[in-house]
Design a protein around this nucleic acid. Structure first.
Lengths: 153, 153
DNA sequence: TTGATATCATTTGCGTACGAATGAATTTTG
DNA sequence: CAAAATTCATTCGTACGCAAATGATATCAA
């Protein structure tokens, strides 16, 4: 008896319980695996920086000086997480922190020269990472996938 | 001048550096956000269990008793991660651990009655979670998206 | 059979990720 | 203006996620 037939038999018998929910078919599960795969590809190309750390640097390159909180919003990290990421980048000399002159609550983050040099150098690698992550898909599939993924996120 | 024109001007001037890599367009970044969103939806429906914990329970329901390592492979978790997840499920009384009689290295994991009751009760909620995660997409888009996501993961 | 290899589990260390609580500074509002 | 509400940053606690090292057990091969 094939797997198909086996399932149909269970349906008939009203014993589908074990068949109607397959973990490996759920978006959440596959999303998690896709993300894991990406992180692994990232690490293979950029060993000394994590994706969140690179995201912070790349975004700082775009927007220049911002507060820690605002940077967090731009790269989808809550305040507690962003703090850790920025702390580590600061320890490496990639960013520097200054208090906002007017609003003394704010902590302004900006790239150091070294930080800027690092992002510029890494961006070509980041493009390769994106490419490799999407490599199982054809160009047309990539376009479709990115559109739908963005719609969902 | 529109943003488009502004970019074109930069291209002409050979100053495209800041425009040719946009973090928010990279798969890795969007994948991370999509995953975050899913986890958040999950938590809203199932507050007392994390997605990895539920994954372990759901898979144990499918396969019955397995070793910790093998379970890890089935749910895409390395040995160190799986240990923590199983420890917490054990502390809650959802799984029980026994040494393999023949191969004394192996630690067999299986659902307790309480664990089984919990999964069965939660599966309908998990289905809702999948639904809600995919809700920004039309049924046709869902089919396309799931196919491509699986291909990529 | 024994010595090399492989497998299973555990531990350590580091880095996200986020809820909740706290305190300082700012803004809103009565 | 003064009290209430909000914002920014920090800290604590919990939970993945993975690399690397370790120890116990099994398997393979000379």
């Amino acid at each position: 008896m094939s797997a198909e037939e086996s399932i149909l038999k269970l349906v008939d018998a009203g014993e589908l319980d074990r068949e109607d929910y397959r973990l490996q078919d759920q978006v959440g599960f596959i999303l998690r695996r896709a993300h894991q795969r990406h992180v692994s590809i990232f690490a293979a190309h950029i060993a000394d920086l994590t994706p969140p750390q690179f995201a912070a640097l790349a975004k700082l390159r775009d927007v220049g000086e911002t507060s820690q909180n605002q940077l967090g919003q731009l790269i989808a990290m809550d305040a507690a997480t962003v703090k850790g990421v920025i702390d580590r980048l600061k320890a490496r000399g990639f960013v520097e922190l200054t208090r906002h002159e007017v609003d003394k609550r704010r902590l302004l983050v900006s790239l150091t020269a070294e930080g800027r040099e690092a992002v510029e150098r890494l961006i070509p690698l980041a493009q390769k990472i994106t490419e490799e992550t999407l490599s199982p898909l054809s160009p047309k599939e990539v376009a479709t996938f990115m559109k739908l993924l963005a719609k969902m996120a």
